[in-house]
Computed example of a mutant assay.
Amino acid sequence: MPLNLEYFHFGDHGLYYGNYGGLDYSAGTENGTITGTSADPNPVDAYDQAFYEHDLALQQASSTEERLEAHVHVITAVYDLLL
């Protein structure tokens, strides 16, 4: 599944994708946080869904191992979508 170029945009911390892809970018805002509820903006596609799950896992992580697991999960999810 190709990335949709219209979902890329620039912000203060660099390049973002959708509502959840990018450094310190979540819920459509820089330094944003998410609730894990329907109050969160919808991901724009499957890639953004992977970034959403990554952001939520990082917010809920309480250890280095949990943060590393979240990073590995988003990398493998995006890789699988690119195949």
Rank of each mutant, 00 (worst) to 15 (best):
G36Y: 09
Y20P: 13
L83M: 03
V74Q: 07
G21M: 06
A70D: 03
G14W: 00
D40G: 13
A27C: 10
L23D: 08
Y52H: 07
D80N: 12
L5W: 14
L5T: 15
D55A: 04
G28N: 01
L82D: 08
L15S: 12
H13K: 15
G18N: 05
E65H: 02
D45C: 08
L58R: 08
E53H: 07
P2H: 09
L56P: 01
Y79M: 06
T33M: 10
N4R: 15
L83A: 06
A39F: 12
D55M: 02
A61V: 05
Q60R: 15
I75V: 10
T29Q: 14
F8N: 09
V44R: 13
I75G: 04
D48S: 04
A61I: 03
Y7C: 12
D55R: 07
S63Q: 04
D24V: 10
T35F: 02
G11T: 07
G21A: 08
G22V: 06
N42I: 00
R67K: 14
S38C: 02
F8T: 10
F8D: 13
T29R: 15
F51N: 10
R67Q: 11
I34W: 00
L56T: 02
Y16W: 03
L81H: 01
T64L: 12
V74C: 04
R67G: 13
L58S: 04
A27N: 15
V44G: 05
Q49T: 15
H71W: 00
L15E: 12
V72A: 07
Q59P: 00
L81V: 01
F8E: 08
L68N: 09
G18E: 06
N42W: 04
T29S: 08
H73E: 14
H9G: 13
G22P: 11
Y79T: 08
N19K: 14
Y20C: 06
I75A: 08
P2K: 10
I34R: 05
T76S: 08
D12K: 11
G22R: 03
N4L: 12
L5R: 14
D12I: 12
M1L: 13
V74F: 01
A61M: 06
A39C: 01
G18I: 01
V72F: 01
Q59Y: 00
V72K: 03
L3V: 14
L58D: 09
T37V: 08
L82Y: 06
L81G: 02
E69S: 09
T76Y: 07
P43Y: 09
L68H: 09
D48V: 08
M1D: 15
Y52I: 02
L3I: 11
G21Q: 07
L82C: 03
G36P: 07
E69V: 02
D80Y: 03
A39P: 02
T33P: 06
T29L: 11
T76C: 00
T64N: 03
G11M: 10
L81S: 00
L68M: 02
R67V: 04
Q49I: 05
